[in-house]
Design a protein around this nucleic acid. Sequence first.
DNA 1: GTGAAAGCGCTAACAC
DNA 2: GTGTTAGCGCTTTCAC
Lengths: 341, 341
Amino acid sequence: MTSEVSESTPTPTLEMVAARAGVSRATASRVVNGSPKVTPEVAEAVRAAIDALNYVPNRAARSLASRRTQMIALVIPESTAMVFADPFFASIVQGIAMYLAETEYTLNMLIAVESKPDKTRQYLISGNVDGALIVSHHSGDHSYAHLEKSLPVVFAGRPLLPDAQGGSYFVGVDDIAGERIAVEHLIGRGRRSVAAIAGPQDMPPGVDRLEGWRRAVQDRGLDETLVEFGDFTPASGADAMRRLLDRGIPIDAVVVANDQMAMGAYTTLRERGLRIPEDVAVVGFDDNYFGLTASPPLTTVHQPSVELGRAMAEVLVKIIEGHPVDQVTILPTELVVRESS
Amino acid sequence: MTSEVSESTPTPTLEMVAARAGVSRATASRVVNGSPKVTPEVAEAVRAAIDALNYVPNRAARSLASRRTQMIALVIPESTAMVFADPFFASIVQGIAMYLAETEYTLNMLIAVESKPDKTRQYLISGNVDGALIVSHHSGDHSYAHLEKSLPVVFAGRPLLPDAQGGSYFVGVDDIAGERIAVEHLIGRGRRSVAAIAGPQDMPPGVDRLEGWRRAVQDRGLDETLVEFGDFTPASGADAMRRLLDRGIPIDAVVVANDQMAMGAYTTLRERGLRIPEDVAVVGFDDNYFGLTASPPLTTVHQPSVELGRAMAEVLVKIIEGHPVDQVTILPTELVVRESS
DNA sequence: GTGAAAGCGCTAACAC
DNA sequence: GTGTTAGCGCTTTCAC
């Protein structure tokens, strides 16, 4: 047993490990880094010393010498910082963190303060991290556009300008296809007046989901003017629904660009005494538990959010380690039919 | 203008800054670190060189030499990783990140994988970070109990065992007082049969909020048996409400240990044809926008979650920098009266 | 396969 | 006030 009154043991160094194993620091280092050119017995001895001493490499020293930091930045623009209130982003972060927990990389979370735009940029390009993950509502953001020249970067979502993606990498879903399937589902159930509550048109998901609705509606020759916009918040969804209803045109279904606005639409529909789905069917987008636990449970387009985060991290690590990866990774969406449609 | 075809500029070092400013590395370092013992003119020259070169200190080198890492770990147990789905935790993380963004410290987010409990622990005590923030449902968690002997640690919530807090620091709210005020509000509005939907009894907030209800109810000599338990999820709140109603005892109000379970209670109440608040008043706890956007908007006990995160980070930084801080920081809750009561 | 030696970029005594 | 001098703990040629 260890002495109860043991002095706080000095942090073990590679030097100590090497001494205990009777080898040089170089060899000990090789074992730590899994170099193949070490005799099994020697490696074993070093490993024994390592856990006898409870040795953990000093990251600072390691990265100073190797010029790799083993750190990955997760950059969140301040304006998106409310991100955390959004279960979708929350899940992405979770996916990233969980993937990285299995690797040697460490997650460095940065809130990019807008008043000091250069601070974040400088931090990133100054070799403090091996790569960056950018999670922003406005994907392909402003200040991060040319970052990929200095270090590997992976963005959530799709590039803002399809042609301008440069050397950037993206991980996202096909919003157009996802929303389109939602509309077709509604039409398939006999709905003929399918309105849309769209998201902001300066964000790719806002644009693409609207486009998905538009294409489906055009295909069937239905009314393409039945659209109102919101900003992804529940309140804005409620307002948009109100405006849609106030047009006086009968509506028997509405696809909403995210679950939270769909919840707002629920509120308005109830106010007006309309039943869901009997009078108006509602379909959301995201699949978070706002919708899952709503009444009636919301039919929605599921995005694999945790997997999205996981994939972002995975792509970045591959780039860093020089493995080949596609520039754009698209994960599938899936329509989850519940009781609101 | 800079040449368009400039080679990728080598990362500037302190050495280069010093040379350009015509001083020694030591002096340059002093300027970078804000030492007072530098002649203003010299300092100015160095500063000029710094931004001419766009110099950013290399963290690895700095921390290797100074034995400080300028990194703070945010530890989230895997079991709590769903944390991110909980707006309350999400806000705490946001508060932490935003505070740290203003300091020299950097946030290192770790998911403590339960299958390798020592990995996280070792990482923390091996000098990779200057301090740790522990955000766990089970505050004062298992493996982190004795961490404070090795590095500064701040926990969210209150200590599990009041006497066993040792050298630990805590930041939280007074759940007992908060819930008590909620109950008194209900009684003040004439409710006489105030039930409780409590949280898990292995978490301080679960225990304390129940205790707050109990004390208030006891004071007025009301029924103390009207309690059912949930696990903080909406579904469990719905179930608990169902069990409460099934007892056949008339209930005219219910305090729920968090907003999400309150949303579940809403669902059940509606199922049973009971009106909120006419038949049953409902009060939640947290104040997130599940409740805010519910219909009717939920009366709830507000927790200053972003501030809680901010305070955690602030306390930790103070400890690290040797400033005095209280071991326990309690932030105020506030009853937000909306339409459900 | 293994060791010796030379740094990685910076801070911190210690002289001056 | 400023420069000199040692390292911080590790990786990585380069010989052997």
